[in-house]
Design a protein around this nucleic acid. Structure first.
Lengths: 149, 149
DNA sequence: CTAAATAGGACTCCTTTTATCCTAAATCAA
DNA sequence: TTGATTTAGGATAAAAGGAGTCCTATTTAG
């Protein structure tokens, strides 16, 4: 239906939390899940995938949890989406060059490629550093509004 | 999974066929289905939706079938996708303003909106007139290549 | 009247998504 | 070493959505 999966949504929220609380100490997945309001067991599983891909680092045992494995400006939304969902293809015929035998004659093909590039470029250009920054601005605005009342 | 449904893909192929064979005579859905290599009964069903939305006109009875209800440059890919799939929302929280209670504080929200606008603008800007034109260019090129062999 | 076409609904099958749960492995501290 | 805590990994189950078929009703040309 052309929609982002919950898995990706949860993973992004989780990484955003880590980026916003990037002290160096590991944070338990359960704590993150509670803070972001997502199912804990599910988030833990998603973080496994992120750890495998090298975006977060996992620490087992007491005082364990997860930390970012690189600085927030080096992680894009696209990175996390694809880590959790696999590569994005708007249409099957874009899976790889030559996969679609209609490629040379099908005019729709080019449109999909164009649309996909637009979307992917945008998501690739959005980093978690941006996200944290704009989140803080939003939070300040929300606070100001509630005080003014 | 962030992918276009087959329903939309089929519908687009069908409308593209009509746009490319826009003589004014109605064309049976079965003929279109065969030409485009899609399941006939399914395409017929999809065309019902397109007819309801006013993009194609249906003619019942012998010599019946479908024609475009407006000129190809007035129909965009987005029109057809949304006629078949319903409105596109990359993320649930974009379904309508105010639907997401995190809107004022959630920084990801703005990113989704940006990504969605990029994608929708692109699809809105791609018309079936463009599609037919580029399809004819592609066909000519393909013919030239096969003759040169 | 009959044949040909769409309209509409019901229904099935399959895949994917969204989880949950259990056991194993790692690690810290007493 | 033991026990508590936390992630790793796999199995599994429930729910939803996607893809498609089929049957009957309706329209219409000849």
């Amino acid at each position: 239906m052309f929609r982002l999966s919950r898995a990706a949504e949860y993973a992004i929220r989780g990484v955003a939390y880590l980026a916003d609380n990037n002290s160096g100490d590991a944070i338990e997945s359960e704590k993150i899940a509670k803070a972001e309001g997502v199912p804990a067991a599910y988030l833990a599983k998603l973080f496994q995938a992120l750890a495998k891909k090298g975006f977060v680092r996992s620490v087992r045992g007491p005082e364990g949890g997860f930390t970012l494995a690189m600085s927030p400006e080096r992680i894009s939304l696209l990175d996390i989406i694809e880590a959790v969902e696999g590569p994005i293809y708007l249409n099957d015929c874009l899976i790889r060059a030559g996969h679609c035998q209609r490629e040379t004659i099908c005019p729709v093909h080019d449109v999909w490629r164009g649309a996909q590039e637009k979307l992917l470029d945008y998501l690739r250009g959005s980093t978690f550093a941006d996200l944290v920054a704009s989140g803080r601005v939003k939070l300040m605005r929300a606070r100001r509004r509630s005080c003014a009342k």
